[in-house]
């Protein structure tokens, strides 16, 4: 095994990152009220970005502006450098989207519905329908009227519709709404694959924070139409120097003494009822601590990492359950 191979860094950085979507100070005023307020962020090629915010934060409104369904009061949206306001056709041809619930013509079959959208896009042939239908697993339902589809089936057809013209940017408003667990998982695997293999950028708006946490590289958090924060979700191992651990032991006092004596280890608390010790220490010092505990004949039952979940962060950022 060649261990140096691990040290070769992936070529990444601003130079290689191609911007697919650029929001430039986008605002939407309705009746004098700013629904979306001077929103700016970027999405790069192959990146999966979550758009988070409490109910009424302005996520759907933002997505409607990106897709040209509503006019913006200020700012601009660039898709691959094309302005959605001034070069609508070039810009929109790079976008595939689902906005809120996917709605189709109920009296037509799934196949006929997809044909409708195929006739409105340039370049894709009929064979593309077969491809996208297989991707979303709807082969069986293609000749059924959409009227007879379940919500999850319509959601899948919505994704098929969004991918039909091979867009560079996929915009999904609540895409897992109505999908069963297996469907959610399939969708997640599929999103990852198209982002990695085909370099498609994906913007997902969702309330399911666990969902976002698992799939997205970054999250854009908005509240009251304003940008709250943009946060990195995928871990860079080196960046996480400090870890917080909970260790369940048989002799709590002995453990506390041992841990306290070690350099760099901070004992942040102890739970006598559960024989649990809370410590904070550099990532590299974990084996040292474990060895020291064993040496002192302290039995270890569990070691768990205390990570703040996105949910806690989210509640912190948006101040709990206030709806704008």
């Amino acid at each position: 095994m060649n261990s140096t191979a691990h040290n070769v860094q992936e070529p990444s950085g601003p130079a290689q990152e191609q911007t697919v979507l650029e929001m430039q100070g986008v605002s939407k005023l309705i009746k004098g009220k700013a629904i979306v307020d001077n929103l700016s962020f970027k999405i790069h090629k192959g990146e999966i970005v979550g758009l988070l915010g409490p109910n009424g934060a302005g996520k759907t409104t933002t997505i409607r502006m990106m897709t040209g369904l509503i006019r913006m009061s200020g700012g601009d949206v660039l898709i691959h450098g094309h302005s959605i306001r001034k070069e609508f056709k070039q810009a929109i041809s790079q976008i595939g989207a689902i906005i809120e619930n996917p709605e189709f013509y109920p009296h037509m079959t799934g196949y006929d519905n997809l044909l409708q959208y195929l006739r409105m896009s340039d370049g894709a042939g009929v064979s593309r329908i077969k491809e996208v239908v297989e991707l979303v697993g709807l082969q069986e339902a293609m000749n059924k009227k959409v009227r007879a589809y379940s919500l999850g089936m319509r959601q899948r057809l919505g994704i098929a519709q969004a991918l039909l013209h091979s867009p560079k940017l996929l915009i999904l408003d609540e895409p897992t709404n109505g999908l069963d667990p297996a469907g959610i998982r399939e969708m997640r695997d599929y999103m990852r694959r198209i982002a990695e293999v085909e370099g498609i950028a994906i913007l997902i708006s969702s309330h399911m924070l666990a969902e976002i946490e698992q799939i997205c590289h970054r999250a854009v958090v908005i509240q009251n139409g304003k940008l709250v924060t943009v946060t990195q979700l995928t871990e860079v191992p080196e960046a996480r120097s400090e870890v917080a651990l909970t260790i369940r032991v048989d002799k709590l006092e002995a453990a506390r003494t041992v841990a306290g004596a070690l350099q760099g280890v901070k004992v942040t608390g102890a739970d006598e009822a559960h024989f649990e010790l809370h410590v904070q220490l550099p990532d590299g010092a974990v084996p040292e601590l474990v060895a020291a505990l064993s040496e002192a004949k302290v039995g270890i039952y569990r070691i768990t990492e205390n990570r703040q979940s996105l949910e806690e962060d989210f509640l912190k950022w948006t101040g709990g359950n206030r709806i704008a």
Partner: peptide, 14 residues
């Protein structure tokens, strides 16, 4: 009323 207007208008057609 069906909501199909959304998919209709996000195509490369004016």
């Amino acid at each position: 009323s069906q909501g199909t207007i959304k998919f209709l208008l996000i195509r490369a057609r004016s």
